[in-house]
Simulated scan of single mutants.
Amino acid sequence: MGAVVGALFVGVDGGGTSTRCVVAAESGEILGRGRAGGANAVSVRDPSANLLAALLAALGSLDRSRVAGGVFGLAGAAQARALAERAWSEAELPGRPRVVPDMLVAFTGTTDAADGTVLVAGTGAVGARVRSRRIVRRADGFGWLFGDEGSGVWLGRRAVAAALTALDGRGAPTALIGPVAAALLGEAGDPQDVPALVAAAYDRIAEAGPAWLGSLAPAVDAAARRGDQVARDIVREAARRLGRTARVVGEPDGTGEERGPLVLAGSLLTEPTELARLVRAELGPRTTSLPAGDGAAGAAALALRAALPPGDPRAGEGHRALIGRTFADRPERRADDGRG
């Protein structure tokens, strides 16, 4: 269908820790923004409520009857579509939204290129190959229990395990005991009380969901920077696993098409972390990468493209306006440049 003058387009990027929403005009001008808690159906207790909160905050006083389309970029279980449609309905928006994988909106929020690769490491972790702005191949993203290797939750699980094994004598001494104990028991708790630590860890996951483990990732990264060998080993292993995920989805597929950009998404790869540095080194000096932009804007760009006829120049113009620049304009980073 064709977009109408004055139409609005909604983009939602729902991750494990936070949900971001934008409402944009056909020109790509962003008219509203909203933010709420995480929306991963696997690791968050009430993702639909967070989706609705982000939607309502972004819509504000805008005329909801003008909404001509919406795209949700979501991770998690198969019920993600139902969660998005429920939030959309409760926000009293017309029609139904499209639901796509969150790594796709990370890609389209960074570049207007149609093809490329994306590696995400935040609360969860996943890699994907993008062709014609669709995911055609993916690796990992299996959730905190079976995968998400190198993610914040993966790092947090290993931090707790390392602290516990150090305390009971099975593991090497580590500076991770302090931050893990503080996170679980508070500053007044006894960091040597293993049963209390174990009980607190299970209670915290039951109350807040496994995404809580991701809150320990900064402590692991900081300890690795300070030279703690246990933390360094954890972060190095995370980098190796993420590098493997990126290589699997980035391998030539026999189509003869150009690979396009590699987008690095998720806070662990876009912030100046030790893990980000090691991942770029793992990928090798021939790999160039782009730090991810605004996934919610990328989702809105997909909504705009879906509303316009194929080949309509307004689609590309609006997409570029939403994300601020083209792939060619963005500063490329080589994998071994050492920056986060």
Rank of each mutant, 00 (worst) to 15 (best):
A222G: 09
G227R: 02
G340T: 08
R241H: 11
G2Q: 08
L213H: 06
G28T: 11
A80C: 11
D63M: 15
T117I: 15
A239I: 06
R33C: 13
D336Y: 08
V263P: 00
L8Q: 02
G186L: 06
D168G: 12
D253C: 14
A219Y: 06
E29R: 13
R129Y: 10
A292P: 01
G266K: 05
A238G: 04
A211F: 12
G14T: 06
P97A: 08
A281Q: 04
A196F: 06
Q229V: 15
F142K: 05
A54Q: 01
F9V: 07
A231C: 09
G34L: 07
N50L: 13
G76F: 10
V198H: 10
R98Q: 15
R170I: 12
S215H: 15
A25P: 07
A166W: 07
L145Q: 12
G127Y: 02
R129P: 03
A161Y: 01
L52P: 07
G295R: 00
T123G: 09
G73S: 12
R129T: 07
G116R: 02
R286N: 13
S43M: 14
W88F: 15
A139D: 01
A238Y: 04
V220T: 13
P179E: 00
A163L: 12
L31E: 05
R333W: 08
A206K: 10
V118C: 12
G189F: 12
G150E: 02
T108P: 01
G73Y: 05
R33M: 11
V263C: 05
P97N: 02
V105R: 05
T111R: 01
G60P: 04
T245I: 15
R134F: 15
L74S: 01
S215P: 03
E149C: 10
V198D: 06
R247T: 09
T326K: 04
D337V: 14
R226W: 07
P179F: 02
T108N: 05
G2Y: 04
V42N: 14
L176T: 03
A246G: 11
A91D: 03
E332V: 14
P97G: 06
R277F: 10
A139T: 15
L167E: 01
G34T: 11
G147C: 14
V100S: 06
P47M: 13
F107N: 04
G76D: 03
I135R: 02
D148W: 04
A91C: 13
G295S: 05
A84K: 01
E26T: 14
L119H: 01
E26D: 09
G295C: 08
S43G: 14
L8D: 01
P94F: 13
P101E: 02
P291F: 15
R137L: 15
A78P: 09
T255H: 13
A321Y: 10
A139R: 04
R134D: 12
A219C: 09
T17N: 04
G15T: 12
